[in-house]
Design a protein around this nucleic acid. Structure first.
Lengths: 126, 126, 126, 126
DNA sequence: GTGGTCTAGACCACC
DNA sequence: GTGGTCTAGACCACG
């Protein structure tokens, strides 16, 4: 279900956990009203310190993607799916914009950049 | 010549200094055999502690982009321009590949992604 | 465990720390997966500033002898022992080659040099 | 006559100049009572800053290998040849002793070390 | 003047 | 608790 995390790649572990939960929600692996695994369960699944999972959940709560049900656990909010999808889209567009801007600043020619983009798009979307 | 650095953006200052020097070399602002501004001079220009610049220069030395001439200063190596240009190209291609991969994994449709790319390329390369 | 360092012998302290760690690993005092003493601990043991130890650890990281586990400490990499042993061997062979070359260039006779070598080897290896 | 110096190898340039002069004297290229080239001349020959040659000469004077003749230049002292030869011998013996000691401390086997020594001696003294 | 090293003390994010 | 970064100020050898 969750690919495990990489403690060496510079991205904080709690951030990686957040991303994976959001990703799972955006893909429809969790739906509104479902419960997320408990902190301890999730920590074990991901081979991560429970404190770290706890921090991730706190973060997700702040973004209103999950909410704490006292004595029960963390529940996916009604608009979680929409939020996660929207965020993914925004993030991807931002990254595209930023990399193209840098390419332009580095004086990469239009034909070079179009070539690279074409190649990757072909490869991925077959 | 050098835009100043942003101490708040998460990227370590010494890393920002490295990047700016590499960028300047890639753009042809420095050529092989020229001397880089002295540690103290650069530190003042960028409003940064000399130790920080020193660390950046050490890093650039390790990457064989500059070399220290004792008692004299830091000199651009013969192949610095090639190295910097190559690195920029590699970085941009990697980022393009990675963002498109994520877009694909998020099930963005081919037409959507092509639309976004087209729009940005038009905007930047006029 | 670690003999302390000599701040007066021309070799930078951070370099001496690196060497001692590598030496300890080559001798089998540390094994893959173990944690190195923390920066602050090592600094106290060696009566050195923590920043200096930090620089040594950074260097060892670059050589892939240890890796940083965030919030946890520095861990010996899987191939650290092999790397350290190999480096020691390389260094010794280089030094032998260089001193013999200089002896030859200085027109030391073959019998003289053999005599000196024999004497030292006997003395050390009993 | 003088091989040129290497500004990148860690050994101070003034030290390299000293060594080369001593080496030349030990080899009999200069004899007692002869004059050394002037600071300016030597600096040009070696492509080095005159200040640096000056410092080397000062050093050689301190070791009583040359002496200043006012208004004339630097003269090789009567016992220069003996001193230089003796120093070379001492240096070589010290370095041999030190590297063998390190090899022993690193638990290199007697047969390994003998093999390496043999190979190098054969190669150099043919 | 140059770069290189070291110390001291501070602050940060992470686990 | 951990490592990582930054600043400040000092000292050194080199050219």
């Amino acid at each position: 279900m969750f690919p495990s995390i990489d403690p060496q790649n510079g991205i904080p572990i709690f951030e990686q956990v957040c991303r994976q939960v959001k990703y799972a929600i955006a893909q429809g692996a969790y739906h509104s009203g479902e419960m997320l695994p408990s902190v301890r369960e999730m920590a074990q699944k991901m081979a991560v310190n429970p404190n770290t999972v706890s921090r991730s959940y706190r973060e997700l709560q702040r973004e209103e993607i999950i909410e704490a049900i006292r004595g029960t656990g963390m529940q996916i909010t009604p608009n979680a799916t929409a939020l996660c999808k929207k965020e993914r889209k925004r993030l991807i567009q931002e990254r595209i914009s930023s990399v193209l801007q840098e390419a332009h600043a580095s004086q990469v020619s239009k034909s070079d950049i179009l070539g690279w983009l074409e190649k990757e798009v072909q490869r991925l979307w077959k």
